[in-house]
Design a protein around this nucleic acid. Sequence first.
DNA 1: CTGTATAATGATAGCGCTTTCATTGATGAA
DNA 2: TTCATCAATGAAAGCGCTATCATTATACAG
Lengths: 341, 341
Amino acid sequence: MAEGNATIYDIAADAGVSIATVSRVLRGEANVSPATRKKVQEAIARRDYRPSSIARGLTSKVTHSLGIILPKLLNPHYAMIFTGAQEEARKLGYTMSLFPWSSLDTDAYDPATMLVERRLDGLIVCVEYLPADHEEQVLAALQQLKRVMPVVLIGCVPPGYDFPAVSNNNAAMMKEVVAYLVSLGHERIAFIGGVEQDKDPLRRGVGYREGLREARLPYTDSYRVYCKGTAEAGRAALAAMLDALKPEYWPTAVIAMNDLVAMGCQAEARDRGIPMPEQLSLVGCDDLFCAPYLYPALTSINSHQQQTGARAVQLLISGENKHETCDWELVERASCARAHI
Amino acid sequence: MAEGNATIYDIAADAGVSIATVSRVLRGEANVSPATRKKVQEAIARRDYRPSSIARGLTSKVTHSLGIILPKLLNPHYAMIFTGAQEEARKLGYTMSLFPWSSLDTDAYDPATMLVERRLDGLIVCVEYLPADHEEQVLAALQQLKRVMPVVLIGCVPPGYDFPAVSNNNAAMMKEVVAYLVSLGHERIAFIGGVEQDKDPLRRGVGYREGLREARLPYTDSYRVYCKGTAEAGRAALAAMLDALKPEYWPTAVIAMNDLVAMGCQAEARDRGIPMPEQLSLVGCDDLFCAPYLYPALTSINSHQQQTGARAVQLLISGENKHETCDWELVERASCARAHI
DNA sequence: CTGTATAATGATAGCGCTTTCATTGATGAA
DNA sequence: TTCATCAATGAAAGCGCTATCATTATACAG
């Protein structure tokens, strides 16, 4: 049966019609007589024929394949986004290929080359945590790329750029976290993560400050430490903060920019013998699969990352130039308690 | 500059040569005079021309795109395999698309359709934990697919089938773990995970039994409980095992089929107030990124999963029909201690 | 009947490349 | 000078489709 190499000509010959007619039934056009349609369909089934999407793409200019660029899949946060995007793409009949940032700027290969050579129908780019020094360069490159294929961003669109996007309202998320901790009686609340020169109003660090202001709590630099979004970095950051402070000024609650950082904080607190949550409450963000299994189980923000990915694909395919925001929810677990004292 | 739609004809016209000559410099053929080559390259650069891989594929029959099928990326184990494969593919100039099992058998779409329509140059299929009742059906389908495109498996090739593959020597891994626990003085060692009717000699459960035999320890059904490879399942499995046993017969060490299951075990032990590792040692497998941050930090087997993915791509592209095995190492952390008593 | 609208189908020109084969000059041997 | 040799190039035929016309066959109004 499966020849695997039948062409539209073979089918046409088998069915005794022209290739135009075969093409019509392939594409489900209306004006084909039922009898002819049946003949063709039988021929197709008989030879297990699958039209070449390559040849199709050459003619019709649509390849039904999308791309997504993100930092690294090993971070489950991105794995969720990717999964959501991939599944949605597939539902809509598209294929999804991954292009990690890492490999893009690692080698001598021009990032855009592979993307445009492939004639992708569209590209999703995750710019959530672009290092500030890269940002301009990357966005300029994307602006270029946009002339060739539709681009949808995941994350905030910096002023001056115009892209459809789906993003988290990070600031609002963090404000809610601060409010939650305040409701538990915390007053010395620290925030770990992010970059110092961050001017983006939607970023998490900003929401933290706003949350403090709304709760009429003072902002202190000593409670705000910056680091990359990894467990190692989180651990080092908490260590640095605690080292710089007399124990009586230690925060009673820490907000980590994400769950990885939170994991690092847990490890550091544990090593120092700081009981959690009794002496230190902790909130993460992203609600990774492992959050419930950490010790103590980590309170975190679930921001529906799969849905984010899926929505990005929908925007990409529909061509809407919208800017959407995901909703989220705080998932309470065991890592937070009422403030001591 | 970036027109994005220049064709080989435009370049030929610009450079004052024929398209055949342009094609030659594109493919780096030798017999082009330096002067001509230069002219063409300048024209290419001037218009930011990128040859269409679609058109290329139509003619040359190679698409430079690969596919990989695996259960779900949300499990970091698969994310590692995918990452390794993707990066290797990219290094070799290939694109990698993901096709999760879940979506393949969920919808009415014939699994193979999308794959062959795309005219992939090859496919990697992760058959590590195929449910036994699916196995036959899946492998038959792959056998079919093989007539159309090269297929490489990750996992064991069941007898009767012929595929290039890269797999873990799961049995040997587990034997090592048993030996390790025995060296710590453990005699009541349990194994959690896998499926009962597993006849595959390389599977983990089998290695466990062999390990016991070599240590001259008795095998007991009560210490062998089966479950899916998730944290929830692992937790339930450990609970069931302990419930069925008088505490004095509880195992002093548990081997989990993977780190997810181990995470579930940790949670269950914690809830029951069983101190770990003092009363119960635990070993996982896969060495997920979170293993060092669990409590206690989880001893696990690192089996170089990224390398596994990369190797699969190499086999796929080289066309070698080999069966390779990955090496591994036991990563000792805090979840194991000398047996009490 | 003739003429015209309509539905079904076929012929064919691309799409943007690769590849084979033919052609053109140069070059050097006879 | 003449002819075979060879490097550099061009002409053109696909690759497997889609999509535009053109061509039938059929129906129905005038």
